[in-house]
Amino acid sequence: MAYAYLFKYIIIGDTGVGKSCLLLQFTDKRFQPVHDLTIGVEFGARMITIDGKQIKLQIWDTAGQEAFRSITRSYYRGAAGALLVYDITRRDTFNHLTTWLEDARQHSNSNMVIMLIGNKSDLESRREVKKEEGEAFAREHGLVFMETSAKTAANVEEAFINTAKEIYEKIQEGVFDINNEANGIKIGPQHSAAGGASGAGGAGAGGAAGGGCC
């Protein structure tokens, strides 16, 4: 399926906050309680529709472990949107937000849309971080805020799609230069060349979007 735009997202945040689960819920609509530790970065993709346009979200799900921090930093570049995730049941993950935010702002382009996500909202009984705190942090740093649950899928779609909507609006406003791929936005292939042998080459070639998931 062809797309009008491709947005590159990154998901960042402490290890174990549920980044990979959020991605899996969004791309596969399923929840996997036990998940391998992410090494470096994993990828996911899904098509969404905004304003009647097909948009492919290419999501880079980074490793939260401290050891991978230097690697994941090199992936920030060229992202149009970021989901900064913390765990509402673990105060320390909320406390680390400032560091994550600084990292993200330093290594990405300034126009990147950042969505703050308080995950595991289904675990209300174990809540350590109030919703108001998340809202306040988001307001203070100019982020969009949302509490989600990768388990129940609450607000998961909204988190990804609202970020895309903001990016789309920024494109309409001319904030993003869509021809500059460093902004994390690619224009979809108009009409891909017909089959047959294609030249060998680097990673520059655009391609058709995959199906609903990877």
Binding site: S192, G195, S198, G207
Partner: peptide, 13 residues
Amino acid sequence: EAKEVHYENLFDD
């Protein structure tokens, strides 16, 4: 059909 057998697209997919 052309796209289905287009190597680059498939590689991307």
